[in-house]
């Protein structure tokens, strides 16, 4: 069974249709990059996968959960699907450690000691062990984003979504975040990432999806997609991002 299965999904904001029949399948362990211009619907698609946006028609299945809009079903889904946002969204009044331990403790009832051990483990994974008791606003953007990744990982998700996670970072900090993600990919995590980092998509993602005008315009193995775009739209997009 595939990890993520999206079938003919339509999504509108009012009269504006942003997803016009999107279908996409991601197998467990795959890394899939979603690229495209602003407004092509790629972030919306990602947010539909964990139910942050509701779809009007179609079907989304994620690791055994059919996306259904009741509080209970959504919570069950979100325990298995982590998401990392562009703006980090760490809780400013909690330390790094507390940020990471909060959700496992209150949503899964993980005992304190265990949550702490788990937090230390994921923090080490993103290379920030020494920041356990630091507040988010004392960290750089890149460090905050790595903590946000760790916070998601502490829930032991089966799928991770990344929504333009490096777009708010300068190039130097972008590198450290991408490194963490590459590490995760190598560890076998199923990942969907909306990104503007074409080199990262090309080198790390197994497949790349090019979205255009609310549709999957073109998709394929990353290397092939970037070197031999079939549609003129993708060719133009790839060319424009190389500048």
């Amino acid at each position: 069974m595939s990890a993520v299965h999206i079938e003919n999904v339509h999504k509108s904001f009012g009269k504006l249709e942003v997803l016009k029949g999107v279908s996409l399948t991601v197998e467990a362990g795959q890394v899939v990059a979603i690229i495209g211009r602003s407004g092509s619907g790629k972030s919306t698609l990602l947010r539909c996968i964990n139910g942050l946006e509701t779809i009007q028609s179609g079907r989304i299945e994620v690791v055994g959960h059919t996306v259904t809009y009741t509080d209970e079903k959504l919570r069950a889904l979100r325990k298995d699907v982590g998401i990392v946002f562009q703006s980090y969204n760490l809780f400013p009044h909690l330390t790094v450690g507390q940020n990471i331990m909060l959700a496992p403790r209150i949503t899964k009832g993980v005992p304190k000691e265990e949550a702490r051990a788990q937090a230390e483990k994921v923090l080490a994974q993103v290379g920030l062990s020494e920041k356990f008791d630091v507040y988010p606003d004392n960290l750089s953007g890149g460090q905050q984003q790595r903590v946000a990744i760790a916070r998601s990982l502490a829930m032991q998700p089966k799928v991770m979504l990344f929504d333009e996670v490096t777009s708010a970072l300068d190039p130097e900090l972008t590198g450290e975040v991408l490194l963490v993600m590459e590490e995760l990919a190598r560890g076998g995590m199923t990942m969907l990432l909306v990104t503007h980092e074409m080199n990262f998509a090309r080198s790390v993602a197994d497949f790349t999806v090019f979205m255009h005008q609310g549709k999957v315009w073109e998709m394929g193995p990353s290397e092939e997609l970037f070197s031999h775009p079939k549609t003129p739209e993708l060719a133009a997009f790839v060319k424009s991002t190389l500048k």
Partner: peptide, 20 residues
């Protein structure tokens, strides 16, 4: 975005109010 972060971590609305 703070509320979305809480939702994405499978918290209930009440937990989000209380903890976030």
């Amino acid at each position: 975005s703070q509320i979305e972060a809480g939702l994405s971590l499978a918290m209930t609305k009440r937990q989000i109010f209380q903890h976030v």
